[in-house]
Design a protein around this nucleic acid. Structure first.
Lengths: 337, 337
DNA sequence: ACGACTCCTTACATCGATGTAAGTCCCAAG
DNA sequence: CTTGGGACTTACATCGATGTAAGGAGTCGT
């Protein structure tokens, strides 16, 4: 129950001044070996640990960064969070994880370091953010955006080439002879979100193959969860002529669709192909296993942390950077792999 | 790029003292309406936001609580984290999410509020923690344990009745005529972890049904992920006589097993039943859909936050509480549902 | 033995917010 | 006009860590 030891307590125990203790903690040279040992022992004995609030107040740094994602129960974000945490750990930082639910208000809060100014920087995976939110943000807080990017730029950004990825996935389906390819979770107009970019890539592939675009095949969804994929697939099966492939804009949608197709006794890939995005762990174990676009998540995490730490360590204005990460189409059973 | 406004800046702008601003921020009564309005306007104009480090230093409270779970890419923990965050939000707190990887060292760090002491309390889902880690912990930091509980008590705890849950799941399989039920992820001896408790429940059910226990049917796993379930299932299929049901101690194991069984052309539930634990979203969409033990996750989250906030708001020693949360067996296709 | 230098350590102020205690102001009653 | 009291507001110290600048103890050369 003893109150937590402060630097002052350690100093008294070791018979030195608080500043000397601080010097030891921060590995400053100007401390004799004898003093250093004495202080270290005092720290051990008293169980001293630095109080981050005090340090933050004085230095303006906490050694913590924030990662804000829309939904943790979307596996892609959970996997990404795991990787970002590992990378941050490797670089001696601690990650505070936040969930925005894709609400603009919460994304804004993340942009401003929440109520606090408790973190040194923010990695944000936005969904609802408005371009002007970025333009008017407080630039003293370093920010890196992941995936989605509200137009306008001016902020560091890490993502795959969504247009190319969708084009390749679509080309794969076309090469298998599919001609009526539905886009589950797609969007034809409006903001340049990931959904829009991927739909654009899909259209490019159609055009290159000389297949006419049919707006009815682009099906929006409420959310990117299993149930939405299942619902969309069920709806699509009732259309005439019905699609012969589903390009689902994330794996949850695709896995939900697989289930709905199974219930309707539609054989995959026999009579219909399914492709997803993200390459979450579950895609390797579904029945059938799922063909999907695998972003290099490891590299996304690495780059995000690196860009952010750069901004933190080297203050001052510098041009926004855009880091494009690699991706690969993993062909599995759902498209005959 | 103006530096962030401090309380002092607001005070000057509004023509009052810093303390008056503080009084307004904290909704103290002793402020005239006129002054209150003036201060509020100044806050808006300057974009002032309180600096949590300063407040924490002064008050010893941050309004933040920590949730530490083993692996975010285990869907159960991701879903639980989502619920805990929502509950905390409802009660006006912010959650910092941490991942321990089930490493004792990291769990210990969580117990001590990490390097920092800037979280008001910790909800920890331990895996590797030792009973004596709890005995020697610094009791000034409120802690609530989830799920697993290192023997010894003395710390608030929230979990389902694991023994009963496993007994019921096993009884369900027995009632379907299954007699050689393997436990994937089970453990017969050693610490009283969740795996051990569930295995105990399994044995109770066998005993009640007069079915002899066969230690060879308890299969340990490295981790509780799909691949481990797939591997275990593959191994079990090669035994003779082979099992007629798999009681998998979490859903990932079960889903991985389903895939392996599919590859071996073993029909589920035709020739073999599979049951999981946790009721993650994916179990509703797998082929076949998965019978599983559903803990009341909502209630786990609610209770965890409530117990923790109690400890935070009412300082001083009080006996540790044990909150047992309800569960239900959800019968789906994998056992003929 | 003395001054000049290192090398190490210390005193003090500071970061931002807020508890405590001490004002200040204004109005009403005497 | 003076005084008492309530309603508001302010000055100051404080939480813990650390930058700055000054202080003190040795060491070395001559």
């Amino acid at each position: 129950m003893a109150a937590r030891a402060r630097i002052k307590d350690v100093a008294e125990y070791a018979g030195v001044s608080p500043k000397t203790v601080s010097n030891v903690i921060n590995n400053f040279e100007q401390v004799s070996d004898r003093t250093r040992e004495a202080v270290k022992e005092a720290i051990d004995v008293l169980g001293y640990r630095v109080n981050i609030a005090g340090r933050q107040l004085r230095q303006g740094r906490t050694g913590m960064i924030t990662l804000a994602v829309p939904e943790l129960d979307v596996a892609y974000f959970a996997e990404l969070a795991t990787l970002v945490m590992a990378e941050a750990d490797r670089r001696g930082r601690t990650v505070l994880l936040h969930q925005t639910n894709g609400a603009r208000e919460r994304e804004l809060a993340a942009l401003h370091g929440f109520d606090a100014r408790f973190t040194d920087g923010v990695v944000l995976s936005p969904l609802a953010l408005h371009p002007r939110d970025l333009a008017t943000r407080d630039r003293s807080l370093p920010v890196v955006l992941l995936g989605e990017r509200p137009a306008g730029g001016g902020t560091d950004h890490v993502a795959i080439d969504n247009v190319a990825a969708a084009r390749e996935a679509t080309a794969h389906l076309l090469s298998r002879g599919r001609r009526r390819i539905a886009v589950v979770g797609g969007r034809v107009s409006g903001r340049q979100g990931t959904d829009r970019l991927r739909t654009d890539g899909y259209r490019q592939a159609l055009k290159e193959a000389g297949v006419p675009f049919d707006g009815d095949l682009v099906v929006p969804v409420d959310a990117f969860q299993w149930r939405d994929g299942a619902r969309a697939a069920a709806t699509l099966l009732d259309t005439d002529p019905r699609p012969d492939a589903l390009l689902c804009l994330n794996d949850h949608l695709a896995l939900g669709a697989l289930r709905a197709l199974h219930e309707r006794r539609v054989s995959v890939p026999g009579s219909l192909d399914v492709v997803g995005f993200d390459d979450i762990e579950a895609t390797r174990f579904s029945v059938p296993s799922l063909t999907t676009v695998a972003p290099d998540k490891q590299e996304i995490a690495r780059a995000a942390v690196e860009l952010l730490l750069d901004r933190i360590d080297i203050p001052g204005e510098s041009p926004a950077r855009d880091h494009v990460v690699g991706h690969a189409l993993i062909v599995r059973e759902s498209t005959g792999g």
